[in-house]
Design a protein around this nucleic acid. Structure first.
Length: 922
RNA sequence: AGGACUAUAGCUCAGUUGGUUAGAGCGCUACCUUGACAUGGUAGAGGUCCCCAGUUCGAAUCUGGGUAGUCCUACCA
């Protein structure tokens, strides 16, 4: 074995081996366990959020696979309608053409080409993370099978009246030329103005003043509304106003929606361009004037002077023209929420168009019930509130998109515009007796990407066919996801699955936090703070990293800033840490209800942990290869105190890890393993094995027992650790397993260690704790008295307790070796003690004779410090016990515990004071 | 506007049903290349548990009220 752990070659080697051997495919017992991967964008690439999420799923999958579950981790990718189409359109733009130049078929062909070309990136990256996905079952949301499921769902929902087509106000993206759903609109606060305009009363005897943030829409006003009980305006209700610039007259109406306090209390109503105005318009039967075209430029519905102007140009013109007419009352600064498209970042326009909708209210009812009655559980629980709040006020879901990339809506129109929905044109013709002489034209639109994602848990398993996989693996066990897509995806999956399968899509939703950078900032390309998990695995030099982060940036200023920040944060680039270290870092940060700040310092610590593991294995090999490790069981074998102790600790760790998995506390699992492996197995057990293995006088049985424990405990914790660190555990297990008498091609399919309660050994645990405290006592004296670590010193022990004496007899070898003692002796009468430096371990006094070693003043200082601490302690406990309230009202065992503690501390205090006195009188 | 979450060592975070001397990793200090590992070992220093009030014999933990930060939902033209 190499002296240090080198992850690079073993990781890819093992992954290829596993995949080729088919270990990722479901196999195992009656109980099924399944997770459906949240399908990443097929042409995307892995970011830290993915890395985190995949690591969690892989741990769960490997854990259950090892426990004998019939385990499926379903893999697949999403066609990501808008995102993918945008990328390809941008490529065309670079060549100076648009998708319209190509035409629909050619363009879609291009997108498929791009998918083929770049679709491998993310799946390659998933492999680098060690994700044990069943690649043989890989799916894509636009596969024929999944497309058939999408069609089936659409047709059935239409037939049930749960999908309908309607002319409504939608969120229109003027850059992408498509409608988008409410969820795809991101509103942010921006600085704007509030313009006050005077609208003259028809008849010429005065005016009303309205306030607006969007002056250009006044061209489409069809009323002005006031509050019905507003005394200022009550007499004007029903009168008409002259709408300036248009030559139209509009009525003054009364509506409860108007807030009398805001602005002037008069609201201009533009039903075709504002969601609230739309509702008011419907209530009052107002005309709706659609001012804009698809680009949000003014259409022929606007007065001639404004036609063809962009909405923002039109705004300036309208304000200027009203000002010229003397109708601009005033302009105020005003902050307002501006809605922007989450993809395009342009201002979204409420726009009147024909779109397809899903009646979400109806589907939401059983979906709410499923969470209420516990059929689906969120972890952490608090997300259920978020889910309920949204579901109980859910709006119909606009599912049509004016894009070319996606599932085309299975609806056909005849020449009269009559719509027919069915699985194909033939099916439609047949169902409605339409002969070939009638031309049918398919709806141009495609479905929202999330429509197909909503079917993911069952469409991937073969639905609408009645497959064996569906019966076995559906509902899936758990969904692992970020909170940002609870509405986009989780809620819709629950609704669709309950409707079509009459069962939940998953029993548990594990909601993890967002991965942020070390400063707590969201990672984003424009901030230049993104980390690529692959770069943490393989490492990257500074220059390529800078290039990667600034490459393709349009704004030179931004690129400069990103470059500067990158050079500052990673002056040496990023080191190669390996997949196992990266994964372990994710787990250690995965506590619940909290975002993750990714600090490179953490991963370095876990890289070192990998090295520690590696070297522990190296030690075991050095001492056990070619030796009798006692696993055959036919030779006499003797287990030491340390052997029994580490076995007990191992069992406890197995129990801790099992509980952590049960509660989705990966941070607890990782910490339990880290502490056990480093602080107990390596720091103590390996050290305690040396005095036995290197002692020529030790019996063959004792050596055999130690070797057996070394290899069997190592072999067991490798299995325990494997779900979190798959590669290093496999690599080591291959060579260690035979020593432990185990056979098998891979650790992946070995049974997971089950905690055995009876293996607890309290006696051994207490004895080792005693030994540790004595050793630490001696080391402390050594360190604080500046006794060179190599110098062998004598030690005397004395105590009133018989146990202490017995323990010394059993452990003197350990003590001598581990603390470099020339000699350790029991002192029968503590009054015979020579001048010495003293430490206490319970009632035991540890004495390091001063002769030639100890500085008197230093020891006095040390004792005073100890005494000071004890005095504080004693007075604190005395105060507590002196409080009648405490003694009378606290439970007896708590009081007794305090009394015991006080007695022990007083005893220790007395001993040390006595020592101090003796040394002072020397 | 409503709601959720967070606030513990210089930094990143644990802390079960109230009783711990409040812990870990990184960083820091001192010493040490000893036959698994310097990506290491040993011993240390370091905390007003955001603030105020309350409940309690006892509060990092429970309740109320603040402050700061993050986020979600909705929205006043």
């Amino acid at each position: 074995m190499e002296k240090t752990f080198q992850p690079a070659d073993i990781e890819t080697r093992w992954y290829d081996t596993w995949e080729a051997a088919g270990y990722f495919a479901p196999q195992g017992g009656e109980r099924a366990y399944s997770i459906m991967i949240p399908p990443p964008n097929v042409t995307g690439s892995l970011h830290m959020g993915h890395g985190f999420q995949e690591a969690i799923m892989d741990a769960l999958i490997r854990y259950h696979r090892m426990r004998g579950f019939n385990t499926l981790w379903q893999v697949g990718t999403d066609h990501a309608g808008i995102a993918t189409q945008m990328v390809v359109e941008r490529q065309l733009e670079a060549q100076g053409i648009t998708r319209h130049d190509l035409g629909r078929d050619k363009f879609v062909e291009k997108v498929w080409e791009w998918k083929e070309e770049s679709g491998g990136t993310i799946t390659r990256q998933l492999r680098r993370l060690g994700s044990s996905l069943d690649w043989s079952r890989e799916r894509f949301t636009m596969d024929p099978g999944l497309s058939a499921a999408v069609q089936e769902v659409f047709v059935r929902l239409y037939q049930e009246g749960l999908i309908y087509r309607g002319k409504r106000l939608v969120n229109w993206d003027p850059a992408l030329h498509t409608a988008i759903s409410d969820l795809e609109v991101v509103s942010q606060e921006e600085q704007g103005h509030l313009w006050h305009f005077n609208y003259p009363l028809a008849g010429g005897e005065g005016h009303l003043t309205v306030a607006t943030t969007r002056p250009e829409t006044m061209l489409g006003d069809t009323a002005v509304a006031v509050h019905p009980e507003d005394d200022r305006y009550a007499h004007l209700i029903g009168r008409s106003l002259e709408l300036p610039l248009t030559g139209r007259e509009i009525p003054v109406i009364a509506d409860e929606h108007v807030d009398r306090e805001f602005g002037t209390g008069c609201v201009k109503i533009t039903p075709a361009h504002d969601f609230n105005d739309y509702d008011i318009g419907k209530r009052h039967g107002l005309p709706m004037i659609n001012l804009f075209d698809d680009n949000a430029a003014l259409s022929d519905a606007a007065p001639e002077a404004y036609r063809g102007l962009d909405r923002f140009e039109a705004r300036q013109r309208v304000v200027a023209d009203l000002d010229a007419l003397g109708l601009l009352e005033k302009v105020e600064d005003h902050t307002l929420m501006v809605p922007r498209g989450d993809r395009s970042d342009v201002v979204i326009e409420p726009y009147l168009t024909d779109q397809w909708y899903v009646d979400a209210r109806e589907l939401a009812k059983p979906a709410i019930a499923a969470v209420e009655n516990g059929a689906i559980e969120f972890v952490p629980k608090q997300w259920e509130n978020t889910y309920f709040a949204w579901m109980r006020d859910i709006q119909d879901w606009c599912i049509s998109r004016q894009l070319w990339w996606g599932h085309r809506i299975p609806a056909w129109y005849d020449e009269e515009g009559q719509v027919y929905v069915g699985n194909s044109e033939e099916a439609v013709r047949q169902a409605h007796n339409i002969d070939a002489s009638v031309t049918l034209r398919q709806d141009e639109d495609v479905l929202d990407t999330w429509f197909s994602s909503a079917l993911w848990t069952f469409s991937t398993l073969g639905w609408p066919e009645d497959t064996e996989e569906l019966a076995t693996f559906h509902p899936s066990s758990v969904l692992v996801t970020g909170f940002d897509i609870i509405f986009f995806w989780v809620a819709r999956m629950i609704m669709m699955t309950l409707h079509f399968r009459k069962e939940v899509p998953f029993h548990t939703v594990y909601v993890h936090g967002l991965v942020r950078d070390a400063e707590g900032q969201k990672m984003s390309k424009s901030k230049g703070n993104v980390l690529d998990p692959i770069d943490l695995i393989d490492g990257i030099e500074l220059e390529p990293l800078v290039e990667k982060r600034t490459g393709g940036m349009m704004q030179p200023k931004l690129a400069q800033r990103v470059e500067k920040a990158t050079r500052k944060q990673f002056p040496e680039g990023i080191a190669a840490y390996g997949t196992d270290a990266l994964r372990f870092t994710y787990y250690s940060l995965a506590s619940t209800g909290r975002d993750i700040r990714f600090d490179v310092g953490r991963i370095e610590g876990f890289r070192n942990f990998c090295n520690k593991i590696w070297n522990a294995a190296r030690y075991v090999h050095m001492n056990c290869d070619g030796e009798d490790c006692g696993v055959a069981g036919d030779e006499p074998l003797e287990l030491s105190l340390a052997d029994r102790w580490i076995v007990a600790r191992m069992q406890q760790t197995a129990a801790d890890v099992a509980r952590a998995f049960d509660q989705y506390r990966f941070d607890h699992a990782s910490q339990a393993l880290y502490e056990f492996i480093w602080n107990e197995y390596c720091d103590w057990y390996l050290e305690l094995s040396k005095p036995v293995l290197w002692d020529d006088d030790a019996s063959a049985g004792a050596k055999r027992g130690t070797r057996r424990t070394l290899v069997t405990v190592l072999e067991a914790w490798l299995r325990l650790l494997h779900p979190l660190m798959p590669f290093i555990t496999e690599e080591i297990w291959q060579s260690v397993a035979p020593l432990a008498g185990k056979r098998g091609d891979t650790i992946m399919l070995q049974p997971y260690p089950e905690p055995e309660k009876h293996a607890q050994d309290e006696q051994a645990t207490r004895d080792i704790e005693w030994l540790k405290s004595v050793i630490v006592g001696i080391r402390t004296i050594r360190s604080e008295m500046n006794i060179p670590p190599g110098k062998e010193i004598p030690v005397l022990l004395t105590s009133t307790s018989g146990d202490d004496k017995k323990r010394l007899e059993q452990n003197s070898q350990y003590l001598k070796k581990l603390t470099k003692l020339a000699d350790v002796r029991w002192l029968a009468d503590r009054n015979d003690a020579p001048a010495a430096a003293t430490a206490l371990a319970g009632e035991l006094e540890i004495l390091v004779p001063m002769a030639g070693l100890i500085d008197k003043d230093a020891e006095i200082g040390r004792l005073n410090k100890e005494i000071g601490k004890l005095e504080n302690d004693v007075s604190r406990i005395e105060g507590k016990l002196g409080n009648p309230g405490f003694v009378d009202r606290a439970p007896a065992d708590v009081v007794n515990k305090e009394r015991d503690k006080l007695a022990a501390q007083q005893q220790a205090l007395e001993t040390l004071r006595e020592k101090l006195q003796r040394i002072q009188t020397m």
